[in-house]
């Protein structure tokens, strides 16, 4: 039984799935391209916070990706969703793609983000250090970059899925119940992150507008998103510090939930 409960919220783009749980001050969790609104870090944080983990349109059961064309639309969607959930100025954390979306919100509407935690963020392009390909490789190849420990259940599942796709399309029944959510997540991510590839060329020069004290967490074993991206966020955001999380690759909130939850709790405070 998860500490997070499923709800649906009507927004301007359609019905959106939101997971909520815990009591205390609010904390928003924005998921990555993996769609992990429900994850062990968010669950651990319900001990101290009223966690709100929306599912971005196109992922899971959330509608509305057809009317979201770019990061500007995505930011307006978050603004709209915050209004409907009665969230004023709140702490926002995001993993990878979700971290990028948090930063976009915090540059445009700094008054809505009281504190920010970026975990393995993408969103910036560092010359010579691109984010590795996520759209053109097999799940098994991605798992190698996303997990420090390949025995993690999600890494295991990604290795298994590789047998069902790719060029060698073998004569076996495709498990649509596993393929469909991944296909939906990647399609929605592509809509915002295909070109420019997982970044907004204008974001860096806007980061000085962020007023929220910011904690940036980088998985020490992350081989997908280079640390230079986290360093650039730390450099450009006025009140920011960068912390390495050992034993985690890209999906740190899945792999090191206790450490991440503790760092976030200490940073945001009661």
């Amino acid at each position: 039984m998860s500490a997070l409960n499923e709800e649906y919220v009507e927004t301007d783009v359609g019905k959106v799935q939101v997971f909520r749980g815990g009591v205390g001050p609010p904390l928003v969790y924005l998921h990555s391209a993996a769609g992990e609104a429900v994850n062990p870090t968010a669950e651990a944080l319900t001990e101290h916070f009223a966690v709100v983990a929306p599912v971005f349109p196109g992922f899971g059961e959330s509608e509305g990706i057809d009317t979201i064309d770019d990061m500007e639309d995505a930011t307006f969607h978050h603004l709209d969703l915050f209004d409907r959930l009665g969230l004023g100025a709140v702490p926002v954390m995001g993993l990878s793609f979700g971290g990028w979306m948090a930063a976009e919100l915090a540059t445009r509407y700094p008054e809505r983000v009281s504190r920010m935690v970026l975990v393995s963020p993408v969103g910036l392009y560092i010359e010579g250090q691109p984010v590795k390909e996520i759209f053109g490789r097999t799940p098994a190849e991605l798992a190698e970059d996303m997990f420090a420990d390949q025995s993690h259940p999600m890494a295991q599942m990604m290795h298994m899925l590789s047998e069902f796709r790719g060029d060698v399309g073998q004569q076996i029944e495709v498990p649509m119940e596993l393929v469909m959510p991944i296909w939906k997540s990647m399609s929605a991510t592509a809509k915002l992150g295909w070109d420019p590839y997982l970044h907004n060329p204008r974001l860096r020069r806007r980061l000085h507008r962020v007023t929220a004290p910011t904690l940036i967490l980088h998985g020490a074993q992350d081989t997908l998103a280079p640390k230079a991206i986290s360093e650039a966020y730390a450099e450009e955001i006025p009140d920011a510090r960068l912390v390495d999380v050992d034993g985690g690759a890209h999906l740190v909130t899945l792999e090191r939930p206790e450490e991440v939850a503790q760092l976030v709790t200490e940073f945001i405070g009661p």
Binding site: V168, Q171, I172, M180, W183, S187, W194
Partner: peptide
Amino acid sequence: GITIQPPGYTSARSLGNILKSSGSFMLN
């Protein structure tokens, strides 16, 4: 390499069809 399927390129209702035929693609 010809069969690579970029995300979002296929609609949900066509995906099943395409995956089903993929086993009978000449490459195999």
